[in-house]
Simulated scan of single mutants.
Amino acid sequence: MGTHTVRAAVTLGAAALLSAGLATASAAPAAQSSATPEHAKPPRPVLVDCFWKPQARPDAFILACGDANSRLASLHWSAWNARSAVARGVNFVNDCKPYCAAGTFHSYPVIVRLDRPEPWKKNPQMKHFTRMSLVFTGARPDGAPRVVTYPLWN
């Protein structure tokens, strides 16, 4: 074997070893950053809608799932955290006069507050708000108190 052939074989062998070492190093998992918190914050609670879909900061929400005779719209959220959520919006309520199918919807400005987060039965790792309070800031439906509180479905 000539010197040229030996030199070529040594060069090719060294290149193969070098590339194998680089491939192994690039495939190794990266070390975890010390900036990562020891335990991540749990996700914020959601609002479960009539179709069993989790929502965060929805712009609308149906209160009366069966007939949609009461619904929230134009929701603008000022807070949404692990304990509660607050929004301003409009509650559209059907007066059902003379009956609901022929009734008229009236709009009432409200403040919406969500609270009492609990694990959601459909997805226990996710929390959902279980109570909603509406504060009517102006006019309100006939016979309705200024603050109405609803349990939310699970």
Rank of each mutant, 00 (worst) to 15 (best):
M1W: 04
M1T: 13
V6A: 12
V6L: 13
V6N: 01
V6M: 08
V10P: 07
L12I: 14
L12F: 10
G13D: 00
L22D: 06
P29R: 10
A30R: 14
A31K: 14
E38S: 12
H39T: 14
H39Q: 14
A40H: 07
A40I: 00
K41F: 08
K41D: 14
K41T: 14
P43W: 00
P43N: 11
P43T: 12
P43I: 09
L47Q: 02
V48I: 15
V48H: 01
D49C: 08
C50R: 06
K53C: 05
Q55S: 08
A56W: 12
R57M: 13
P58L: 10
A60F: 02
A60Y: 00
I62C: 00
A64C: 07
C65M: 04
D67R: 09
N69A: 03
S70I: 07
S70F: 01
R71N: 07
L72A: 05
L75H: 09
A79G: 01
A82D: 15
A82N: 11
S84K: 11
D95R: 03
K97D: 12
K97W: 03
Y99R: 14
A102D: 11
F105W: 10
F105V: 12
Y108P: 06
V110Q: 05
L114W: 04
L114M: 14
R116T: 15
K122Q: 14
P124C: 08
K127M: 11
F129M: 05
F129T: 10
R131V: 13
M132V: 06
M132N: 01
S133G: 10
S133C: 09
V135A: 13
T137G: 04
A139K: 14
R140V: 00
P141R: 06
G143Y: 05
G143H: 05
A144K: 05
P145E: 13
R146N: 08
V148E: 06
N154G: 10
